[in-house]
Design a protein around this nucleic acid. Structure first.
Lengths: 180, 180
DNA sequence: TAGAACATGTAAGACGTTACATGATTCA
DNA sequence: TGAATCATGTAACGTCTTACATGTTCTA
């Protein structure tokens, strides 16, 4: 599942401009790219050259014209193929664990301070996920099944973050009580 | 915590050759880079030019000579600074969630097949972590505290993976029972 | 009046991966 | 005899990010 597949997926939900895609990808944690123009506009041109998407120019009064992209039959077929590919294992990039790995050179107090800062960050992130899930209209909802799947996707991120929060709290407690 | 910091950290544990570092990084999930030569050998040269590491050539009979790198005082100071930086939030790249996001075009049976394949992958990964934790001598152990921290790091990955496993099993069950 | 939102695009560079190049030794 | 391990390095390429460039409209 690379950015191209993701764009095809988004367009299989509904037509969108490059700017729309940028906004969606930037604000989403699931679509984990930064949502920079360079990749998105280049990918759209590429996908169009391959006949997987088309676009129509919409002229707006008092706003710049925009190119609204739609997925083609061929694009849908390609998307279908990538959905059937073997699932990838998650890539977990936790810089904080590397920080902890060399924390031997720090006194207990500084390790605790780090753990507390990390807890704050994670707690904030969890609140963000929960607020985002509550907001309606942000996800495809073409059937009860699709609604369910998107709820589960959102719950996946929350569950992962909750586990992280429990982990850091337990670690804090152990360090405070010097349980080692 | 980038690759350079990670190399400094590893060298703060013990001197190592580029090849040693490559092996450690390749086999570790915490140090999440691929461990390719290009980055590692280039970083070592860079770090040496900045005076953060030095090396001694060890000539071995019946094996190629190697450059054994050590961290300098200056390198230790730089490492200390990066340990005190504000913790980064984990980057979770779960391609599978994106696959599920567009699974509306698949029948229940194919979604279930995907979920089962994913479960297998995750279960395998969890077994791998647990086996790796059991293996001794793979981590710094300069004090009970450091030993504890490394245990917690390893437990973090296991806990995250266990949560993922529970999530996929619950999702499977819901889809089987069509709970939506 | 300054900044955010809308809208499309390009340039430069950092970051990361695979594959290539070389060559001895060890093990199945 | 072929593959894996040890050991250092380079080339080519793909991915991803930040910043630049341009211009209007709306809001604080």
């Amino acid at each position: 599942m690379d950015l191209r597949d993701t764009i095809l997926g988004l367009l299989s939900w509904r037509p969108a401009s490059g700017y729309d895609l940028k906004r969606i990808i930037s604000n989403s944690e699931v679509f984990y790219w930064s949502g920079n123009n360079n990749q998105i506009y280049k990918s759209l041109i590429e996908l169009q050259n391959e006949g997987l998407v088309t676009h129509q120019v919409h002229i707006q009064e008092s706003l710049p014209a925009k190119k609204v992209y739609s997925i083609t039959e061929k694009g849908l077929a390609v998307l279908h193929q990538s959905l059937l590919r073997a699932p990838e294992i998650p890539e977990l990039r936790k810089g904080f664990l590397i920080q902890l790995a060399w924390a031997e050179i720090l006194p207990d107090g500084e390790i605790l301070a780090l753990l507390e800062k990390y807890e704050q960050e994670i707690a904030g992130r969890l609140r963000m996920y929960q607020a985002q899930t509550a907001r309606p209209g942000r996800s495809p909802d073409r059937s009860p099944r699709e609604k369910y799947l998107w709820k589960r996707i959102s719950e996946n991120l929350s569950a992962t973050t909750r586990t992280e929060l429990e982990w850091v709290r337990q670690t804090q407690q152990d360090v405070r009580e010097r349980k080692f």
